[in-house]
Design a protein around this nucleic acid. Sequence first.
DNA 1: AATGAATGAGACTTCATTCAT
DNA 2: CATGAATGAAGTCTCATTCAT
Lengths: 198, 198, 198, 198
Amino acid sequence: MRELTGELTERQRQIVDHAIEMISEGGISALTMRRLSERLGVTEPALYRHFENKTAILAAMLRVLEAETYERLPLDGAATPSALVAHFDRLFALLTERPALATVVFLDEFASTDPDLQGMVRRLLAKNRDRLAAVFTSIQASVPPGAPIDAESLATLLLGGVRLVVRDWRLDECRWDLADRGRRLVTTLAETLTGRTE
Amino acid sequence: MRELTGELTERQRQIVDHAIEMISEGGISALTMRRLSERLGVTEPALYRHFENKTAILAAMLRVLEAETYERLPLDGAATPSALVAHFDRLFALLTERPALATVVFLDEFASTDPDLQGMVRRLLAKNRDRLAAVFTSIQASVPPGAPIDAESLATLLLGGVRLVVRDWRLDECRWDLADRGRRLVTTLAETLTGRTE
Amino acid sequence: MRELTGELTERQRQIVDHAIEMISEGGISALTMRRLSERLGVTEPALYRHFENKTAILAAMLRVLEAETYERLPLDGAATPSALVAHFDRLFALLTERPALATVVFLDEFASTDPDLQGMVRRLLAKNRDRLAAVFTSIQASVPPGAPIDAESLATLLLGGVRLVVRDWRLDECRWDLADRGRRLVTTLAETLTGRTE
Amino acid sequence: MRELTGELTERQRQIVDHAIEMISEGGISALTMRRLSERLGVTEPALYRHFENKTAILAAMLRVLEAETYERLPLDGAATPSALVAHFDRLFALLTERPALATVVFLDEFASTDPDLQGMVRRLLAKNRDRLAAVFTSIQASVPPGAPIDAESLATLLLGGVRLVVRDWRLDECRWDLADRGRRLVTTLAETLTGRTE
DNA sequence: AATGAATGAGACTTCATTCAT
DNA sequence: CATGAATGAAGTCTCATTCAT
């Protein structure tokens, strides 16, 4: 149970991966220790060899999702509208390729169950929004005049919009093109922004 | 059990109200038949005299929430940016006054359990977004020139943003002023829109 | 609740009739006070106006079934093989016409639930078998020589065979001709008997 | 839960044995998961470690009863009246020795609850009757003249008669000699048959 | 590293019945 | 004569977790 150090053993990683998939398929209520163990081809007590309890699995999952998604999708240099669009293009491409990762967009929805996780999730979500807000701030900084627009609100709008689009896409069982619909959303915000600040 | 006609008996209404509150306090998993009955001061079987099963309670709840919220907050005449802002001002005021209604903003989060409810929720959510999209369309129609902006995307951004703000407010136990933060969000979108189309 | 005198009120008779039908459709487990009341278009407590409890309904049912069936099908004069065949022809015709009455053939199967009914059912079944045994005795009496055959066993064989045939017919949802298959059964016994005693 | 392979674990076998006994004592309604678990000295959930659900227990029970009874009582060589009598002698002896097995004679009575079991039971009952009918056919084949008698009807009569006798014996709490009364029944049929075909 | 067996708590639901009105 | 509201007991089943091996 080397999990405490931040690194996961191979087996732990398998467990977390299956957990992500199960949640992505049937929501948080689909993740039970029984079904998880069945999926791994072991019995339930075996899971407790690798994680202290179910909460620990979810916590590890949060870390993995954050790393997977946000390290692969650094937001750092996206200081122009087009860079922003490109960034979300990469996100939608990633989700299309591996839909289970969409869970990362809805982390908050399953935090309510376990109070221990609530803090983790909230911090994570706040971090994401702040990062995005910082991008909006720097976008505006590079554009000369005009009254400054609330960067936090912009970030909230974009993040919220993305969530809704991804949710619909999943409710429709990923049958339509997320990349297309997603890009329309992001450019819509980017354009209104550009129009305003131009 | 006159619930079928669309009208609820007094007792049914009590049950639904308590259910809304319980969900708003602890999420969908906090709503169990046992706890609900305890809250009402009766035993579990008593609930089954008023509703066929738990799903029927949730279904009635959906209808009540929709009626309560959207009949009190008609979106019809909001064909100008300022009318739109005023509309959401009323929403935030309503939620501040009766936080349990915030559940209405997150209906989708608890639909996953029961397939029968999924359809209901999805139709409801789609309806809301379409209504809002129609408003954006007519706002733009009344403003002469400029390339048309995707009304659906605007609706998604706004709805998504509102969800995120309300969620944060609830996670922070309603300690800050929702009306203020919410208005900032809505005006941010309205302004960028105005700037663009001006 | 005049039921004690042996006579049923009109309402009591309605209740009993519906009970018979429900049992005939779904077995004893299909007869619940709730469903029975729904079928009658009243609420459950209303049933308790007419019968003391569920057992009383079943007891009344036993009496009705016995009267209905065995008064309509007197076994008295069936002292010849052909009269016996004719008697069972009438039984099969009756069941074909009103399948719900088939319950009478399986009275014992639901007696196990309520100890109060066990005695009733057993006496009733014994009576039927004894009547039939008497018939066999008189048939043999009218036929001159040969070692006497155990009339009780003959009655048991015939009654048991009839039960099995009727049961199969009902399991097959009354899709085939009970009268035909039933007559084959009865004549088979009658013939072997005739052959023996001839 | 190796039950799928047809073999039962030791614990599964214990569960099934207790289930048989409980049904034999109080009918199908006496078999509840709670009482079954109490009988085994464990809690209810423990049962679900060994069988998927209650139906699975009943299904296993059917298989065990069939194997127990019919493998110990092969009907194959009973092609003469006396062999037939001997066969049923062995059945009655078996039931006397282990009355709980009498349940096997009434399998159909508890199948009504679960549709999944209905098929199993019907097939099983049909098989038994067909086997017995085949015996009657071969008995008659070995006896020269006379119009052929309907073997299926004979099988039905015998099976039905046996059921009735065993039922009475159990209702009388096994107080009288089943072997004696049973043999009288079987020989009665065998004799009439012999008489006829002689 | 994993299993077999079990558990306490609790989920939803149904049953026959009662009581005040 | 009937209803509306409720109840205690019981039903099947699932959950996360533990313990000895």
